[in-house]
C-alpha cells in the first residue's frame, strides 16, 4: 500500500465528509463484523491520508476511457479512489465475502450432506456384514471426493479475501470471470436465480489485476441477484457476457430485476446510496474507484428499461495480445 497509487483528487473536506459518514454508519448499521472492522480500517486510513496529503502526480485516472454519453464519476467514487488500490481491493473482497459467507453454510452443507450419507450407509452395511471390500474402497473414494469439494469451496472464498494478487498481470479474462461465477453460483441457486454466461470462444488476455476484476464482477452479479430477490420478480435471470471491441473489452451484467431508474443511474455509484436493506452501498462506489485508475469504466446502460444492465469497459491500453 504505497502513496504512489493515490490519485490527486483528495481534498481534506471530502475525506472528512467520508469519515463522518463512515462513523455514523458504524454507529447505526448492523453490518457484519468483518465489514465493520474493514470500515474502521478505512476510516483510520482516510485519517492518515488527511494528515499527510498525497503528492500531486499525473495519475492514471486522468486518461479514463469515457463511453459515449457517460456521466462524470460520482464525487464519492473519487473520494474512495484516494485510498490505495490494494486496500480497496481488500475491502471490496471482504464486502462481497461478507455476503457470500451468508450462503456458505448452505454451500458447504451439500458436500457435508453427501459425506454424512456415505458414511451413514457404509457403517450400517458394515455392521450388517453386507459391505464388500471393493464397495468399501468405492465409498471411501466418494467421501474423499466430497471432502475435496468442501475444501475447494473454502479455498475459493479464501482467494477472494486475500490482499495480494491486486497487481496487474497477464490474465485470461474469461477464466477469471468463470471463477467469479463459480463462487456465486450456489448463492444464485439458493435464491432460485439462473446464471447464464456468454463468453467468446477465443481467450481474451488482458494486463489487469485478476483480483480486482474478479471482485467487481462478483459484486455486480451479487447486486443483480439481490435486486431480483428483493423485488421478487417472476423472471429470475442474470447474464454475464464478454464482448471484445476495437477499443477494448466490454463485460456486461444484465439482469431481469426491477431495473434502475434513469435518475438513479449515477446516484448508485455514490457511497452509502444503497437501496438494499442489507449492505451499506459501498460496493458500486468501490468497484468504480477500483476500475477507473486502470482506465476502465463502469456504468449503467441508460437504454435498457427491461431489468438492469451494467457495463464494465476495460480499455484497449489494458489489452496485450489484441492490440495489433
Amino acid at each position: 500500500m504505497t502513496a504512489s497509487g493515490i490519485p490527486p483528487t483528495l481534498t481534506p473536506l471530502a475525506a472528512a465528509d467520508v469519515i463522518t459518514r463512515l462513523e455514523s454508519l458504524l454507529g447505526c448499521c448492523d453490518a457484519p463484523e468483518t465489514l465493520r472492522t474493514q470500515l474502521r480500517q478505512l476510516i483510520a486510513e482516510a485519517r492518515a491520508s488527511m494528515d499527510h496529503p498525497p503528492r500531486r502526480s499525473a495519475g492514471p485516472a486522468q486518461d479514463t476511457l469515457e463511453p459515449p454519453g457517460a456521466q462524470p464519476s460520482a464525487p464519492c467514487g473519487q473520494q474512495l479512489r484516494a485510498l490505495p488500490a490494494t486496500r480497496l481491493a481488500q475491502c471490496a473482497g471482504r464486502h462481497t465475502a461478507g455476503a457470500l459467507i451468508a450462503v456458505l453454510p448452505h454451500e458447504l452443507s451439500q458436500p457435508l450432506a453427501a459425506i454424512a450419507m456415505y458414511s451413514n450407509v457404509a457403517s450400517a452395511l458394515l455392521q450388517s456384514g453386507t459391505l464388500a471390500p471393493d464397495a468399501l474402497a468405492d465409498v471411501m473414494d466418494r467421501i474423499q471426493g466430497q471432502v475435496k469439494r468442501a475444501a475447494e469451496i473454502l479455498a475459493r472464498l479464501r482467494e477472494l479475501v486475500r490482499s495480494d494478487g491486486a497487481e496487474p498481470s497477464s490474465t485470461d479474462l474469461c477464466q477469471t470471470l468463470a471463477e467469479a461465477v463459480a463462487l456465486i453460483r450456489p448463492l444464485a441457486a439458493h435464491k432460485q436465480v439462473q446464471l447464464f454466461v456468454d463468453f467468446p470462444a477465443e481467450p481474451v488476455r488482458l494486463q489487469v489485476s485478476k483480483t480486482v476484476i474478479g471482485q467487481i464482477v462478483l459484486h455486480l452479479l451479487f447486486n443483480s441477484i439481490e435486486a431480483i430477490e428483493q423485488a421478487g420478480t417472476a423472471q429470475r435471470r442474470v447474464r454475464l457476457s464478454v464482448h471484445p471491441e476495437p477499443m477494448g473489452v466490454q463485460v456486461t451484467v444484465q439482469d431481469s430485476g426491477p431495473g434502475i431508474r434513469p435518475e438513479d443511474a449515477e446516484r448508485i455509484f455514490k457511497a452509502f446510496e444503497s437501496d438494499k436493506s442489507a449492505g451499506c452501498g459501498l460496493g458500486l462506489a468501490i468497484s468504480r474507484a477500483l476500475i477507473e485508475p486502470l482506465g476502465g469504466h463502469l456504468w449503467v446502460d441508460p437504454r435498457v428499461t427491461d431489468g438492469a444492465t451494467l457495463h464494465l469497459r476495460l480499455p484497449r491500453s489494458a489489452h496485450t495480445e489484441a492490440d495489433q
Binding site: 450432506a113 459425506i115 450419507m117 456415505y118 465409498v139 466418494r142 469439494r149
Partner: peptide, 8 residues
C-alpha cells in the same frame, strides 16, 4: 455430489 450420494 448429493445426487450421487443418494443414488449410491
Amino acid at each position: 455430489g448429493v445426487c450421487e450420494a443418494i443414488d449410491w
